[in-house]
Design a protein around this nucleic acid. Structure first.
Length: 851
RNA sequence: GGGCGCGUAGCUCAGUGGGAGAGCGCUCGCUUCACACGCGAGAGGUCGCUGGUUCGAAACCAGCCGUGCCCACCA
């Protein structure tokens, strides 16, 4: 440490993260520590693929927690000397990104159609070039030690090759196919979306009962529906085959009101006899259930609602109306004909688009699908066999349940931004070509080719993330060194959307699991327990937290909050992190400015030295174990309490006289303890620990690549721990007694020791002189006999004594009761009974002394 | 409809069979030469309710009440 450094340490009594973080991060980048060589095997190395944030994204609390977890593990393993790679990149996020750019266009009064596909896509790339790095910079603010030199994007050239290879292979295997099928149509994004992008919301609708006259009869069949507007596309009425009421009608026909079409009356088990009238109108073109019933019975599939969410030409006089308008008009027309038998409010759950927020229209359309059952089978097995371990364990079952009932995945989207599906059509000979690179002309007839208009679901490309980012399908050094990756963490909401699919594609393509461990972390809720969301205004900006409290504080706070269940954001935990950073700084100042010039090393000379070293090594072992078990809250909690309580509150106070004396042994021990604390906390609080490391005599390069502490078991000393903890407890009893006896805080009291001599620090830290003599003691606290003095308030002392007697009496009573219970003595384990006996004896003795 | 979880100090949460814990907040006392983002001391809880198992239950079992999330094609 030079003079300038010493001056800075002496003067800076408060740690200021804003002055430190940018500088330290630049040093790490310059050192190239985050860019490991692609050497060694995946077993020797440590690698993590970041859940790629959307290019349109801004760092939110979920990213911050997710990043804090990954960085803690990546840094710990980097410090252990492993090649540690944290793969970084962004996701092109089809719908979201396209929507952002379309919104900008709208400000100019244009739509994407005004530009045309090519110009529009060009515009999105421009947008990406300008704003796409924002989220990456925000990860740097957090201190994330990602490999920024290997940044990837799901639409970069190499990545597109991976996507096209996968499409081609799956197509050739027959897993990918094109079909006219019922899909979730999102009128907001004008695209089909997958089942996983749909969320159900409770909605209050009106349930209409409508009379459908039975052909050649006076009878009517009353059906119940919340969507009368779809009746225009009805092609049957169904009843349950076991329904006595309608048995005779099955096989006959009804006449569709307003339209006049003949509808067969069919029987199907799906119909619930109890619900409504037990008769169900069947609209295969606009209802998922009806679609399936329709296919089963070979019914016509009519459509009256268009992709724009309005009534289509097929709706005749209702064409062009919105759905709501059509519903009003149709109900009015039915009412006029006297067909409405009943209307009642009805609350049910209805699908909405997760993306656009609009109500899903089930529509039949021509889409690309991927059959999932064959892909799922091995992905189920690796999780069943714990080759991919999912933590917490309850998510393993959720994963397996879902995978076992997996359904085909609709992978096409009617968007422009994304991987355009690598399929070409020849209009001349109707040939369909699937290829990894664009073919020049039709191979069959030489005709012109036209590429499929649709793009792939964004999750189709994300599913390849762990290996596509490493260069697959090429055999790259990165792939050899870092695949399978070690670890993946995410919130549970993308367990199916992403995690499951990566396992499936990983096994199918590189032929190995994509990661060994999946840790499903908490969802951080707003302070009031609501969801954090931009639209609700409940979001808390991690960057603001970093500005105010520092990245270390936020990282510590988030890890301290994290749990196996959802948690509310806690300002107190972030503040605890900030206070810890400050405490680290100040304790380090005390040590670094006062220690003698010695090599850091454990050099215990007395029981308290052996105690702190034992506690230190125990803490190193325990914190490491907890980090490796993804028990972050307890890991940081233990590190915190060791440092604050044991090291600062007790050890530093105990050794101050020796430290100020310039004693070499205690200097060496303190520097050793500090080095290990900095190393242990660096994965969680990288900035402050790195900054302090600058002043540490053991410094030889950055802490980011210094050795992570490994517990030294030879320093464990249970006897020293017991002795010193006894001394601490006695000190606390003495202090409490003083306080309650009304002794001024600064006064020193005279006392004698009767019995076992306590550790030497007890007297000083409790402000007692143990060498008094002569007078009759006025109180007994453990082995300490307090002698009379004018600082004592006789009344308070007497009150204190009486209070203690009462405590002891109740303790004795409790012990006697317990040991008097024959069942307890006979059936409880011997050591438990023995412990009770000893306690009772102790309390009886003390009570006797006080009598 | 199925599944998972939660209900412990004023607040946010730990604690899974042997005497109720942490952080914050609160009260009292400290300008003690690292830190007031600090130091010392303290108050505060019939562990949702009711039964059961056990010598012993916050913890295990059953039921109930409250609350959150996920999955699901009953109009």
């Amino acid at each position: 440490m030079d003079a300038a450094q010493r001056k800075k340490l002496e003067e800076t009594t408060r740690y200021d993260p804003s002055e430190v973080e940018g500088r330290i991060f630049a040093e790490w980048m310059e050192g190239g520590y985050f860019h490991p060589q692609a050497e060694g095997s995946p077993e020797e190395n440590f690698s993590v693929a970041i859940p790629p944030p959307n290019v349109t994204g801004a760092l939110h609390m979920g990213h911050a927690l997710n990043g804090s977890i990954q960085d803690a593990l990546v840094r710990m393993n980097r410090m252990r000397g492993r090649n540690a790679l944290w793969i970084l990149g962004t996701d092109h996020a089809g719908i979201a990104t396209q929507a952002v750019v379309e919104k900008e266009l709208r400000k100019e009064g244009k739509t994407r159609h005004d530009l045309g596909r090519e110009a529009f896509v060009e515009k999105v790339w421009e947008w990406k070039a300008e704003y796409g790095s924002r989220i990456v910079e925000q990860y740097q603010r957090l201190g994330a030690s990602c490999d920024y030199q290997r940044e990837r994007f799901t639409l970069d050239e190499g990545y597109v090759r991976a996507v096209y290879r996968v499409f081609k292979v799956l197509f050739d295997k027959g897993y990918i196919y094109r079909d006219n099928y019922m899909v979730n149509w999102d009128p907001g994004s004008h695209s089909a979306i997958s089942d996983l992008e749909v969320e159900n919301r409770e909605v209050e609708d009106v349930l209409y009962s409508i009379d459908y006259p039975v052909e050649d009869s006076d009878q009517v069949l009353t059906v119940a529906t919340v969507r009368p507007e779809t009746m225009l596309a009805d092609t049957a009425v169904a009843v349950n085959p076991d329904d006595e009421r309608y048995r005779d009608l099955v096989g006959k026909h009804c006449v569709l009101p307003l339209v006049g079409r003949r509808l067969p009356i069919i029987a199907d088990e799906h119909v619930d006899i109890e619900f409504g009238t037990g008769a169900l109108k069947i609209t295969p073109g606009h209802d998922v259930n009806d679609f399936e019933i329709g296919r089963k019975h070979g019914l016509d599939e009519l459509g009256v609602i268009g992709p724009d969410g309005r009534m289509s030409e097929e709706a005749g006089e209702y064409a062009g109306m919105t759905i709501a308008e059509a519903q009003t008009a149709i109900v009015a027309a039915l009412r006029e004909e006297g067909r409405i038998r009943a209307e009642e409010p009805y609350t049910h759950s209805v699908p909405f688009s997760h993306r656009s927020g609009e109500r899903i229209e089930p529509l039949i359309s021509l889409q690309w699908f991927c059959r999932m059952d064959e892909l799922a089978r091995p992905a189920i097995e690796v999780v069943e066999r714990d080759e991919v371990r999912i933590t917490p364990a309850q998510w393993k079952r959720v994963y397996l349940d879902w995978m076992r009932e997996i359904r085909p995945w609709c992978i096409s989207r009617q968007l422009w931004w994304g991987h355009r599906i690598p399929v070409w059509y020849c209009d001349a000979c109707e040939e369909t070509i699937v290829a990894e690179t664009e073919p020049e002309r039709c191979g069959a007839c030489g005709g012109e080719l036209r590429q499929e208009e649709d793009v792939l679901d964004t999750w189709f490309s994300s599913a390849l993330w762990p290996f596509a980012t490493l260069g697959w399908p090429d055999e790259t050094p990165e792939l050899r060194a870092f695949y399978p990756t070690s670890f993946l963490t995410t919130a549970r909401e993308i367990l199916f959307l992403w995690v499951a699919r990566m396992i499936m594609t990983g096994l199918e393509f590189p032929g190995a699991i994509p990661f060994r461990d999946v840790y499903v972390h908490s969802v951080i809720q707003a302070r009031d327990g609501r969801r954090m969301s931009k639209s609700l205004g409940t979001g808390i900006d991690p960057l603001e937290e970093i500005d105010v409290h520092g990245a270390d504080a936020l990282r510590f706070g988030l890890l301290a909050m994290s749990s196996t269940q959802d948690v509310r954001f806690s300002d107190a935990k972030v503040q605890q992190g900030r206070d810890l950073a400050n405490k680290l700084w100040n304790a380090s100042r005390l040590i670094l400015l006062n220690t003698a010039e010695v090599e850091p090393a454990p050099r215990p000379t007395c029981v308290e030295d052996r105690w702190i070293l034992s506690r230190l090594e125990r803490t190193v072992a325990s914190v490491t174990e907890k980090l490796e078990a993804y028990d972050f809250a307890h890991a940081v909690g233990e590190a915190y309490s060791f440092f604050w309580r044991d090291l600062c509150d007790w050890y530093l106070e105990i050794v101050k006289p020796r430290l100020y004396d310039g004693e070499e042994e205690v200097s060496a021990t303190l520097l050793y303890a500090l080095e290990r604390v900095l190393g242990l906390l660096h994965p969680v609080m990288p900035f402050v620990t790195e900054e302090i490391w600058n002043y540490h005599p053991a410094r030889d390069g950055h802490l980011a690549v210094h050795a992570f502490p490994v517990a030294d078991e030879s320093l464990l000393d249970a006897a020293a721990e017991e002795d010193v903890e006894g001394g601490i407890a006695l000190t606390q009893r003495l202090r409490a007694w003083r306080d309650l006896a009304g002794v001024p805080a600064g006064a020193t009291l005279a006392a004698v020791v009767d019995g076992v001599e306590p550790p030497s620090f007890v007297g000083r830290l409790s402000r007692f002189e143990f060498d008094g003599a002569g007078a009759e003691p006025v109180a007994a606290i453990g082995p300490v006999r307090v002698l009379p003095s004018e600082e004592l308030d006789a009344e308070a002392v007497a009150a204190r004594l009486e209070k203690r007697r009462a405590e002891l009496r109740s303790e004795v009573e409790r012990g006697e009761r317990k040991l008097g219970n024959e069942g307890f003595v006979a059936k409880a384990p011997a050591e438990v009974v023995e412990e009770e006996r000893l306690k009772l004896e102790r309390y009886r003795n003390e009570l006797e002394e006080l009598a």
